[in-house]
């Protein structure tokens, strides 16, 4: 499972191992990202809209003096938009040396699962593009979609690289 190996990079030494994930909810579906990619989780704060930016970019925030973009996952996945609630959170991750925030409906928990129970993404698992899915964790009572944030924010990172070049 190449995708998965890639995805768990840094988490494990070798072989079947424990994955440590942060799980969260977007539009009643449960997602997870590798905990090592997560820098911090913040409450919703005031965002500054950036004119003429891609639709999924909700705006920018001030993260201790650094201005970082924040992406609305609902919009990115093409889901219906709702009002942000008290439970909404901004998860700040580092992808390709860039810090990006994304908005989720709520954050659930930090979860340890064995990599054995993660399977590659089926073609149609949910409403989102399977390209962004690193795998699906099958827990006893539920399914967790493991996101490949490197791919999820690939276009943003590439854009940055292009700018740098």
């Amino acid at each position: 499972m190449a995708t998965q190996a890639n995805w768990t990079e840094g988490t494990t030494n070798t072989g079947a191992t424990q994955l440590q994930l942060v799980t969260f909810e977007v539009a009643n579906e449960e997602f997870a990202v590798d905990i090592l990619a997560v820098q911090e989780i913040n409450r919703m704060m005031e965002l500054t809209r950036v004119p003429q930016s891609p639709a999924e970019v909700e705006g920018v925030i001030n993260l201790r003096g650094k201005i970082i973009p924040v992406i609305d996952l609902r919009r990115k996945f093409g889901m219906t938009e709702t009002q942000k609630s008290d439970a909404s959170r901004i998860i700040v991750v580092e992808v390709h040396k860039r810090v990006i925030g994304f908005i989720v409906d709520r954050v659930h928990e930090v979860l340890r699962i064995s990599s054995d129970i993660v399977e590659p993404a089926p073609a149609m698992v949910c409403s989102i593009d399977s390209e962004f899915i690193a795998g699906v964790g099958k827990l006893q009572d539920r399914l967790i979609i493991l996101l490949d944030i490197a791919k999820l924010f690939a276009n943003h990172a590439q854009n940055d690289a292009a700018k740098a070049a």
């Binding site: 950036v50 930016s53 854009n159």
Partner: peptide, 11 residues
């Protein structure tokens, strides 16, 4: 500060 904005459009 640099505006580090994801996927800045070419507009």
């Amino acid at each position: 500060k640099a505006l580090d904005e994801a996927g800045a459009s070419s507009t």
